[in-house]
Design a protein around this nucleic acid. Structure first.
Length: 267
DNA sequence: ATGGTAGATACTCTA
């Protein structure tokens, strides 16, 4: 009798969380893994080199990890209970100086692409040009390597709020970084590859946020943006059971400015 | 319009 390699008729939980320094946040991260019990957690802004990644602590908590980091800035990782296969680090054209913003891997037959989109700073900044260019390259990655017939999941900190419902005061944010038309158009182009927004599929047009500025008591006033996303291909969307934002970690001491987004699949 | 906070680094940058 063959031993099944993949889970069948079971729930798989995949989450994304910008932790804003994984070494500062490791106590909250370990606690959240125990409470929320995700199968996979994609993290962004690890802000550490690969030799400083807290691999052992995660192992003790029952998780393996694949990571792609650098000193001080950026950095992404995929943390998983199950085996992490076929890891990709960055784009084909990246060199050793390229910002570490992309890691992809296959877990239980799902191709996971974990991303930390450039912030862009301001529309008149060189960093904004870099942001739009980076997003174009991301679409290119799906065109080149992946099929919409496969189970593909794109998640991470997109640094873009797609719609007015994703912004606490869309009137004031219109034209500003995170909610300007060029960057919204850029992520729409990525979405048109064949993605479904998991949160919107399960929650309609509800207003909900995944990030609140550290400043001006933004979290207490619920002055937030929904810039952390889980987008899935149609074959994966067909198995989507639920998608939600867990605001509890944002309310803790020493919180990240982002909070986890979780999608649950019946595979 | 300004400045408010946090993290990493090193006397400032990024978000």
């Amino acid at each position: 009798m063959a031993i099944p390699l993949l889970c069948s008729n079971c729930l798989v939980k995949i989450a994304t969380w910008n932790v804003n320094s994984i070494n500062v946040r490791i106590p909250q991260l370990i606690a959240w893994l125990r409470d929320a019990d995700p199968d996979v957690l994609c993290v962004q802004e690890t802000k550490c080199t690969d030799d400083n990644f807290p691999e052992v602590v995660l192992e003790e908590a029952g998780y393996k990890a694949a990571f792609h980091g650098e000193k001080s800035y950026n950095g992404v990782a995929i943390i998983s209970k199950d085996e992490i296969k076929d890891v990709r680090l960055g784009f084909d054209h990246d060199n050793e100086d390229s910002q570490k913003r992309l890691i992809a891997a296959t877990v239980n037959g799902v191709r996971i692409v974990n991303t930390y989109f450039p912030n862009g700073q301001a529309l008149d900044s060189d960093k904004f040009v870099f942001k739009l260019d980076w997003i174009q390259h991301l679409r290119g990655l799906f065109d080149e390597y992946y099929s919409t017939d496969e189970k593909v999941l794109l998640c991470g900190d997109f640094n873009v709020a797609p719609d007015p419902a994703d912004v606490w005061n869309p009137g004031a944010w219109e034209g500003h970084i995170h909610f300007s038309l060029p960057e919204r158009a850029a992520i729409t182009y990525v979405k048109q590859w064949g993605f479904v927004d998991a949160f919107r599929k399960k929650n309609g047009d509800v207003k909900a946020f995944s990030w609140w500025d550290y400043r001006a008591g933004a979290f207490q006033k619920n002055h937030g943006l929904r810039i952390d996303h889980i987008w899935v291909s149609e074959p994966l969307a067909a198995t989507l059971k639920d998608c939600w934002i867990d605001t509890a970690p944002r309310d803790q001491e020493k919180a990240s400015d982002h909070t986890p987004v979780i999608a649950e699949f019946d595979v």
